[in-house]
Write a protein that binds this DNA or RNA. Structure first.
Lengths: 182, 182
DNA sequence: AATCATCTACCTATCGATAGGTATATACTA
DNA sequence: TAGTATATACCTATCGATAGGTAGATGATT
């Protein structure tokens, strides 16, 4: 077998499709065709579309957070922030895709409940991570100011991905994050 | 007739749906049901979905730019920027919806060509508008720096809408735009 | 009379989802 | 150890609903 785990292959395919077209951007049939199985087999692994979408967002968040590492392991504030920015930069330039949860967040109002919760969790956990990194600042900021800075950075990065994608030039991403103090 | 123009009513309904669920978030059938006509009648006004989507994005951009007014009419830089921010704030808090072109920009890769172009135009025209407002700065910045600031502000506002919507609290929008120099 | 707006009635393609069947592998039991 | 049971991972076939789209008739407006 080419892939060790068919369920993982399904998630990989679905993730790419979702990061291009959102929640309605992937279908059991299209995933099945690409995975070389029948759509019923995709239903076997993920009974409903809500299940698949939720598993997708959950895996994305877990991998993202794991890849970020521990907030305390960075020598400086700048190093931690650059490390964080690199994760979004990589999603855009290497994958050539939107952030899954940025995409789902835009479509939030039309998502099923379980997927809403999973999408919300991505942002809450990212804010938490950044708040901890921001504790490394030379001049200590208030917890409230740190939270504000964290929120602002995430919003800026999500927006930067949208602009770079729409204007078809990754340089716009760099423009946005240049001179970013927070 | 309740509405003066059925085509306008169709666009209104489609816009709301698109700002909730993106390009695949509206369908001829659902629009027709809400407008009190048959789906064939929607096709009469907008032959294909690409036509409808393009008309949607075009009208949105025109109305947005018209409502922004002339960049030179503001007394100060701060007044111009606040005026601009207010347009996004209004979309979020009054309409309770995403920015149409922010949504479409996220789905950019899965859009038909004509709609891609229309979405791109929204951002290009917004950047132009902001660049002109930024000429009002007390300390004159280079054209390149003004452009960078414009891009950054738009990205931040689009991202702020996503976060506020996903975290179900408009206060997140205010958090993001607080202390925004650019 | 001619144009416009809408209708009925239909098409093909695709959607998510389900029922029921088929191998294969592992695990338990007599 | 031979037979039985269970779980895994698929399959074919089909369902009702919905997608975008079209042809042709009907009624209204000018």
């Amino acid at each position: 077998m080419a892939k060790i785990d068919k369920a993982t292959e399904i998630l990989d395919i679905a993730e790419r499709m979702a990061r291009q077209g959102g929640y309605s951007g992937f279908s059991f049939r299209e995933i099945a065709k690409e995975a070389g199985v029948k759509s019923a087999s995709v239903h076997y692994h993920f009974p409903t579309k809500e299940d698949l979408g939720t598993a997708l967002a959950n895996r994305y968040t877990e991998q993202f957070l794991e890849s970020l590492g521990t907030p305390s392991e960075f020598a400086s504030l700048q190093e931690g922030l650059e490390h964080y920015r690199n994760h979004f930069r990589k999603a855009l330039t290497e994958d050539g895709l939107m952030c899954l949860c940025g995409m789902l967040g835009a479509q939030y109002q039309s998502l099923p409940d379980a997927l809403r919760r999973e999408t919300r969790l991505f942002f809450e956990r990212n804010i938490d991570w950044l708040e901890r990194v921001l504790e490394h600042a030379d001049e200590p900021a208030t917890p409230q100011a740190r939270r504000e800075a964290a929120i602002k950075l995430i919003a800026t990065l999500e927006g930067a991905m949208i602009l770079a994608q729409t204007l078809e030039d990754d340089a716009y991403f760099e423009s946005v994050i240049a001179n970013t103090t927070g």
